[in-house]
């Protein structure tokens, strides 16, 4: 399919995709060096989803994420404090207390909160989207969750409320076929999860999540619909390349041939590079220069973050951080 994106738009997406890949490789390396204080859930093979989503959003739109959507988060958060957060240090976006999972930013970056228990993120941020609409704001909430999260019942309670109240929200399903160590065929009988959106009255699209332009295009359509109060679902199909998190063995994977096939033919980065080279928008030197620049940038951040140190107790556990009216919160 031919898309109508400008050279600038295409290269901007490439910039973030390549940066996301190098970030992932570097963080993966840092786990073995013992620098990461958090678990790291590698987004290999689906970096295109995060980048495609955020590039389709306005700055004023809102995002909630999964633990494998780091490529989206680093388009909104500055990279150094994000890495410093994964290292659990005082320079992090939450002083090392929230990692890449419990972070939220209701100011400039517009990151909506999520729940570590998965499903509830859908009705929570549906309520948030309802609030945006009721206040007459021209803002859309993009709520991303995984195939695993879609087994939680609250997802469907949330979708029902979304359709009922016509909230400005897009629900993205990042379907990478694995929920922790449970393959899709042991999660649900229909591998196309978004089929379940239809009876709730939500329209849906199913796209190849490894194709960044397919992701972007689907999101352009979805966000436009949501802006006109037609909540909808976009299912992005991909394959998780690795174990659930770095450090978990992947001996349970019974689809190793499929993984190799995906690495070879559906790597979102090399696939997009091929697309851009074929159209003479970039060449190998461009790729190498960009990779070198990102490597240098991230290496610098790693060096800095690894020396940043722990936060002091008061910064995190101040009573005012727990209660807005601490005088009525009881003892700590």
């Amino acid at each position: 399919m031919e898309y109508n994106y400008s050279k600038e738009q295409l290269l901007d997406m490439y910039y973030h995709l390549k940066r996301g890949r190098i970030f992932t490789l570097k963080m993966h390396e840092c786990v073995s060096k013992g620098y990461l204080r958090s678990s790291f859930h590698t987004p290999y093979g689906q970096e295109s989803i995060g980048v495609g989503i955020v590039s389709a959003m306005r700055k004023t739109d809102w995002l909630s994420f999964t633990h494998r959507l780091q490529t989206a988060l680093i388009m909104r958060y500055d990279l150094y404090p994000f890495i410093a957060e994964l290292f659990g240090t005082k320079d992090g976006i939450g002083y090392g207390s929230v990692f890449d999972y419990h972070c939220s930013d209701y100011e400039e970056n517009r990151i909506m909160t999520i729940l570590g228990t998965l499903g509830g993120v859908v009705p929570t941020n549906t309520g948030f989207a309802w609030g945006l609409k009721k206040q007459g704001k021209d803002e859309v909430a993009v709520i991303v969750h995984g195939d695993g999260g879609c087994s939680e019942g609250t997802v469907y309670e949330g979708w029902n409320l979304a359709a009922l109240h016509k909230v400005p929200a897009v629900y993205v399903i990042e379907n990478n076929e694995w929920a922790m160590t449970v393959p899709i065929e042991r999660q649900t009988v229909n591998p196309t999860i978004s089929d379940k959106a239809i009876p709730f009255g939500l329209s849906r699209q199913v796209v190849d999540g490894t194709d960044i332009l397919a992701v972007r295009h689907a999101m352009d359509i979805a966000i436009e619909k949501a802006r006109n109060f037609e909540p909808n679902v976009v299912e992005m199909k991909a394959l998780r390349w690795e174990a659930h998190f770095v450090g978990q063995g992947n001996d349970y994977r019974n689809d190793k041939e499929k993984i190799e096939e995906y690495k070879k033919y559906h790597d979102p980065v090399t696939k997009y590079e091929k697309y851009l080279i074929e159209r003479n928008l970039i060449d190998q030197a461009y790729i190498d220069n960009l990779a070198e620049a990102f490597t240098k940038e991230i290496d610098g951040y790693i060096e800095k973050a690894s020396n940043a140190g722990k936060v002091e107790f008061e910064k995190v556990y101040a009573k005012g951080n727990i209660y807005a009216n601490p005088e009525t919160g009881g003892d700590l």
Binding site: Y106, M112, T113, G120, V122, P123, T124, N125, T126, G127, F128, A129, W130, G131, L132, K134, Q135, G153, T154, Y156, E157, G158, N160, L161
Partner: peptide, 13 residues
């Protein structure tokens, strides 16, 4: 469950 989460979201908004 769904509407209590929803109400939380409304509070966040």
């Amino acid at each position: 469950s769904g509407f209590t989460h929803f109400a939380n979201g409304a509070a966040l908004a």
